[in-house]
């Protein structure tokens, strides 16, 4: 039993459960191994619980959750313990060019994940927030860089992804 009492626990669980897919998305973004994903899931949940008294409701709960989940994934867990194998991260263009461009949904997902795994940790954070339809202002605030810098970074990410994904989007 925690020291904060059942009411606080209930409120916390209700909010977290309503947005729990955020934690899964972040885990999937940074890890491939199921056991490691489970560890990261628990670590994020623990950090959310610890930080919960500081949640003041100024931002949306989901935004606050993203912030903590990404912070935990990037800075909180020793990366040597959770490194995605290099062969899985680096997707050579040769791997995808020449394949059938009419991929089914499962294959498309695999290619998408491979493309995302080839990004750096910071780029992954930016792209997930972008794909979740956060505005440039919100993303720049969450990442800690200015909007112009963010625009340039997103452009670079786009070029990187384009090299890998374009054969499958035609």
């Amino acid at each position: 039993m925690s020291k904060r009492g059942p009411d606080i626990e209930e409120a916390f669980l209700e909010k977290v459960n309503a947005n729990r897919r955020i934690i899964h998305k972040v885990c999937n973004l940074y890890l491939k191994d199921e056991a490691e994903k489970e560890d990261l899931f628990q670590e994020i949940l623990l950090q959310l619980w610890r930080a919960y008294p500081n949640f003041q409701g100024k931002a949306k709960f989901s935004t606050w959750m993203y912030r903590i989940a990404l912070n935990t994934a990037i800075t909180g867990v020793r990366k040597s313990q959770r490194k995605v194998p290099v062969e899985d991260r680096e997707v050579e263009e040769a791997d995808v060019i020449g394949e059938d461009t009419l991929l089914d949904k499962k294959e498309r997902s695999q290619v998408l994940w491979k493309a995302i795994y080839s990004l750096s940790d910071v780029e992954k954070a930016i792209i997930i927030l972008y794909m979740e339809s956060y505005s440039y202002e919100e993303i720049s605030e969450m990442v800690g860089i200015n909007v112009n810098h963010l625009g340039v970074k997103i452009n670079r990410i786009k070029k990187k992804l384009k090299a890998i994904l374009s054969p499958h989007l035609t």
Partner: peptide
């Protein structure tokens, strides 16, 4: 604190 307002600040502190 692990949970700074943004990723950059967390990285800087760590």
């Amino acid at each position: 604190p692990l949970m700074d307002p943004n990723i950059k600040q967390s990285l800087e502190k760590l």
